[in-house]
Deep mutational scan, measured.
Amino acid sequence: MDVFMKGLSKAKEGVVAAAEKTKQGVAEAAGKTKEGVLYVGSKTKEGVVHGVATVAEKTKEQVTNVGGAVVTGVTAVAQKTVEGAGSIAAATGFVKKDQLGKNEEGAPQEGILEDMPVDPDNEAYEMPSEEGYQDYEPEA
Results as ranks from 00 to 15, higher is better:
127 M>L: 11
3 V>N: 03
23 K>M: 15
99 Q>S: 13
70 V>M: 05
47 G>R: 10
11 A>D: 01
58 K>F: 11
83 E>R: 07
89 A>P: 03
79 Q>N: 07
25 G>E: 08
8 L>R: 00
12 K>Q: 05
47 G>V: 11
128 P>V: 03
79 Q>S: 09
21 K>C: 03
106 G>A: 07
83 E>H: 08
27 A>S: 05
34 K>M: 04
44 T>Q: 01
83 E>C: 05
55 V>S: 01
48 V>G: 01
4 F>S: 00
124 A>V: 10
21 K>M: 13
88 I>S: 02
9 S>L: 08
50 H>Q: 14
140 A>Q: 06
6 K>Y: 02
13 E>H: 03
76 A>I: 13
41 G>M: 14
25 G>Y: 15
122 N>L: 05
120 P>E: 06
64 T>E: 09
107 A>C: 05
129 S>D: 10
138 P>Q: 04
120 P>N: 07
58 K>S: 06
139 E>N: 09
99 Q>Y: 10
126 E>R: 10
17 A>T: 10
65 N>K: 09
19 A>P: 00
78 A>G: 05
129 S>M: 09
10 K>F: 05
46 E>A: 10
70 V>L: 14
123 E>I: 10
19 A>S: 02
63 V>M: 15
81 T>C: 09
137 E>T: 05
104 E>F: 14
127 M>T: 04
63 V>S: 02
70 V>Y: 05
48 V>C: 05
77 V>P: 01
12 K>V: 12
28 E>D: 05
4 F>T: 00
40 V>G: 01
58 K>Y: 08
40 V>L: 14
83 E>T: 08
59 T>P: 01
87 S>I: 15
7 G>N: 15
46 E>W: 04
49 V>H: 14
57 E>N: 10
120 P>V: 05
56 A>Y: 13
70 V>R: 02
45 K>E: 00
68 G>A: 10
104 E>C: 02
135 D>V: 08
126 E>W: 03
42 S>V: 08
140 A>W: 11
118 V>Q: 02
77 V>G: 03
22 T>I: 14
6 K>Q: 03
44 T>C: 12
66 V>D: 01
53 A>F: 12
8 L>H: 00
19 A>I: 05
117 P>R: 04
13 E>K: 06
6 K>T: 03
2 D>C: 03
29 A>I: 15
6 K>G: 01
94 F>G: 04
47 G>P: 02
70 V>S: 01
112 I>H: 08
69 A>V: 14
59 T>I: 05
104 E>G: 09
77 V>Y: 06
2 D>I: 03
119 D>W: 03
128 P>R: 10
114 E>S: 11
67 G>D: 01
20 E>I: 13
67 G>T: 11
23 K>Q: 05
54 T>C: 15
87 S>Q: 15
115 D>M: 07
60 K>M: 15
115 D>G: 14
37 V>H: 00
23 K>C: 14
1 M>L: 00
75 T>K: 12
47 G>C: 06
10 K>P: 00
88 I>P: 02
40 V>Y: 14
39 Y>L: 11
14 G>S: 14
83 E>N: 08
140 A>E: 09
88 I>H: 02
39 Y>Q: 05
37 V>M: 08
14 G>A: 15
2 D>V: 00
61 E>R: 06
92 T>N: 06
9 S>M: 15
86 G>D: 04
50 H>Y: 10
119 D>R: 02
128 P>D: 11
123 E>R: 04
64 T>V: 12
128 P>K: 05
72 T>N: 14
131 E>R: 07
5 M>I: 00
103 N>D: 13
133 Y>P: 11
83 E>G: 06
66 V>E: 01
120 P>Y: 06
42 S>P: 01
136 Y>G: 06
44 T>W: 15
130 E>Q: 08
139 E>G: 07
57 E>A: 08
59 T>R: 01
66 V>H: 03
40 V>F: 10
102 K>C: 08
98 D>H: 08
137 E>F: 11
73 G>F: 08
38 L>V: 08
130 E>F: 07
75 T>E: 03
59 T>M: 03
16 V>D: 01
120 P>I: 08
52 V>R: 01
57 E>K: 09
89 A>M: 09
133 Y>N: 09
117 P>K: 08
131 E>V: 11
31 G>M: 15
56 A>W: 14
79 Q>M: 10
105 E>L: 09
121 D>K: 10
5 M>G: 01
10 K>C: 02
78 A>W: 15
110 E>N: 08
28 E>M: 08
124 A>M: 11
40 V>H: 02
95 V>G: 08
47 G>W: 08
56 A>N: 02
135 D>F: 07
119 D>M: 09
98 D>V: 03
34 K>P: 00
130 E>I: 07
3 V>Y: 02
113 L>G: 10
70 V>T: 02
99 Q>A: 11
109 Q>C: 07
11 A>T: 03
60 K>C: 06
10 K>V: 15
139 E>D: 11
76 A>F: 08
17 A>S: 06
77 V>A: 07
35 E>M: 13
100 L>A: 13
50 H>N: 09
34 K>V: 15
77 V>K: 02
20 E>L: 13
58 K>R: 12
65 N>Q: 10
23 K>P: 00
